[in-house]
């Protein structure tokens, strides 16, 4: 009886790329919830400023979606490259945008 030998692959047995991909998905989901809350602000017939701020918040979400999608595709490699620092900064910029537009809506 021959025993089946374990197959040698270049995949990490700890599934680190997969875990990182799921972390990006979780974060996208959180971002979507915040974007929906931001959209709700515009419902009761707010002023032009509020509509503008909500539109910019939606834009921040779309930019984040694009960044997350690109990174998830990069993580398909067996040994993914380091997260480009530009992406990290862009993610931070999206968060700052959401917070700033939120503050603008709260203020007016």
């Amino acid at each position: 009886m021959t025993r089946r030998q374990p197959v040698e692959t270049d995949r990490d047995p700890g599934l680190q790329p997969e875990r990182t991909r799921l972390a990006w998905r979780r974060t996208t989901l959180s971002c979507a919830v915040v974007a929906v809350l931001a959209g709700r602000q515009a419902l009761p017939g707010g002023s032009t400023y509020v509509t503008l701020a909500v539109g910019l918040a939606a834009l921040a979400f779309l930019v984040f979606l694009r960044l997350a999608h690109r990174r998830i595709q990069q993580l398909n490699a067996a040994q993914p490259i380091l997260l480009p620092a530009g992406s990290a900064l862009a993610v931070a910029a999206c968060m700052l945008g959401l917070a700033l537009f939120g503050a603008a809506v709260v203020w007016w």
């Binding site: 974060t27 971002c31 915040v34």
Partner: peptide, 13 residues
């Protein structure tokens, strides 16, 4: 980042 999103979402809420 998710912690930050939770705080921002909390502010909206």
């Amino acid at each position: 980042i998710r912690t930050a999103l939770a705080l921002i979402g909390g502010g909206f809420a």
